[in-house]
Design a protein around this nucleic acid. Structure first.
Lengths: 155, 155
DNA sequence: TATTGTTATACTCTATAACTATA
DNA sequence: TATAGTTATAGAGTATAACAATA
């Protein structure tokens, strides 16, 4: 697993300090850690995220949720349908605007979320293996700053 | 495009400081920036990465390349085949171990890479929009530390 | 006309398992 | 038997375009 037998050394040159490459590796690692922490009965990071945010915003419009999470509307439809099919969320059409769909947790969804929320909190607490708590906070702060700069024309 | 009309506010709670969620947003942004910088005639970040590393390690074994880039062998087969089909790399079976495949750039591949390498360097230079150069280096440093801690049992 | 959600399609990336040919 | 590459298959994620219902 060391990846470095003599004769097998591979020089990745400028990738060593490439933000894009490092983000990919970090996300692969984050996925693995999420799976390990949240465990067995099928929750993807995306699905959990959606459940969590619906729980915090009962009746949230499906499109508003998609926009907030940077998920395309078409993709959100699939996610929401799947969660509804599993009985974790309810989808209702409000009378005042019948184009929209309001999302909320079912009892089962709330229970499901409650049970995993503690695991998620623990997962986030030991968020960054190999980094001190201060470094972890620093990393999060830098990423927030980076992400907020997205698409802004005038700094 | 502001995503914040009254009545549309969506509280994402613990996601605000979630490393996994921020990594996803940052990677989406990095993809967009890569596309904008590298432009038109089809190079995915993955394909470019593979080309770049083959260029720096002529004759590299396909499996060693996959391991170094954290790409599964099966996936690397598809990528290498596609690059070969486009005439950008050559695949050769060395006589001393005929199970393996050694990868190298063709003339066209070398030209293709040379033409894009400057663009990539420029892309990396302005790597982190909204971050100062010092913050950018700090972010890269923290990600490197995070990624290196991956799978290590004894710190 | 514009917006919301839906469907269809496609492409990338990832993961797994079974197969082959070599060692 | 072990390894390198291949193939097949599956799933998640993303992106686009066209569509229906509603505003």
């Amino acid at each position: 697993m060391d990846g470095g037998r003599p004769g097998e050394l591979v020089d990745i040159g400028p990738l060593e300090g490439s933000l894009g490459f490092l983000l990919r590796l970090a996300q692969l690692q984050a996925f693995d850690r999420f799976d390990a922490a949240m465990g067995q009965p099928g929750v993807t990071p995306g699905g959990f995220t959606v459940l969590l945010v619906i729980g915090m915003n009962p009746g949230v419009r499906q499109g508003a949720l998609a926009e907030r999470l940077s998920i395309k509307r078409a993709a959100m439809t699939k996610i929401a349908r799947a969660l509804e099919k599993r009985g974790l969320i309810a989808r209702a059409v409000p009378p005042h605007d019948r184009r929209t769909v309001a999302l909320s947790l079912t009892g089962a969804g709330a229970a499901f979320l409650a049970e995993r929320r503690a695991r998620f909190a623990a997962h986030e607490a030991e968020a960054a293996p190999g980094l001190s708590p201060a470094e972890g906070r620093q990393l999060v702060g830098l990423l927030q700053k980076l992400v907020r700069a997205e698409g802004e024309d005038a700094p």
